[in-house]
């Protein structure tokens, strides 16, 4: 049976073929899905660290997300059976009028690998869909992504809709995407903004820890 360390290493090195093979071998050898997931999450954390110290780059994050997605499919049956617990719930989507999903997918995968349950609403998501997802899931963190400058109007409208629905003081809102900065964050009325995917994970962890404390 492959060791957790081997799986983590193959993942961190973004060796797609090897990582997938090791996961398959581990499942075949009856290694619990949750253990394999933990190993992959450790690998993803390593990828995030290397990204922060500029050893890895955006293209590597895309690749790590891609590998994680495939492993997720392999592990899903085992995880469901095991009834694993998550760190918390996050609702995420690219806002109405914008269909950029590369950055959004990276963040979603990073969050998933950090053990969050992510309700991924996809792209071109209208405010009412965000509201419904927040109500249905009871998530307390929401992330909005957008690359077009006009997406900022959609982000603002979504935050307004949260206010109207009486949700605004119950959820923390983060925004991100190429041109998003502190000014945009203020304009749309979000709580925080992130320049990269790794920071989104830091934000979500911090908020949920603060809520528990």
């Amino acid at each position: 049976m492959p060791s957790s360390e081997e799986i983590k290493k193959a993942f961190a090195e973004l060796n797609e073929d090897l990582a997938l093979q090791l996961v398959k071998d581990a499942l075949a050898a009856k290694m619990p899905a949750i253990e394999i997931l933990t190993a992959c999450q450790a690998g993803m954390t390593e990828v995030g660290k290397r990204f922060e110290c500029q050893e890895y780059f955006v293209s590597d994050l895309m690749m790590s997300g891609e590998i994680f997605k495939q492993i997720g499919v392999l592990l899903e049956p085992g995880l469901k059976a095991g009834g694993s617990t998550t760190t918390g719930k996050v609702v995420f989507g690219t806002v109405k009028g914008d269909i950029h999903d590369i950055g959004k997918d990276i963040v979603v995968n990073m969050l998933k690998s950090a053990n969050f349950e992510v309700i991924d609403l996809g792209v071109d998501v209208p405010p009412e869909t965000f509201i419904k997802a927040l109500k249905d899931s009871g998530a307390t963190v929401v992330g909005m992504s957008g690359l077009l400058t006009l997406a900022f109007d959609s982000m603002k409208a979504t935050v307004e809709a949260m206010k109207a629905a009486g949700l605004r003081d119950k959820v923390k809102v983060m925004v991100g995407g190429g041109p998003v900065d502190a000014n945009v964050c203020k304009f749309v009325g979000a709580d925080a903004w992130g320049a990269d995917a790794q920071y989104a994970v830091t934000l979500a962890k911090g908020w949920l820890a603060a809520a528990k404390a």
Partner: peptide, 24 residues
């Protein structure tokens, strides 16, 4: 292309330089 699942899948791999591409 966004409506086709394979685009994003191929996109991540296609960032690599082709020794890998030819193979994968």
């Amino acid at each position: 292309l966004k409506q086709h699942e394979s685009f994003n899948r191929l996109l991540a791999r296609a960032t690599r330089l082709p020794a890998h591409l030819v193979k994968a």
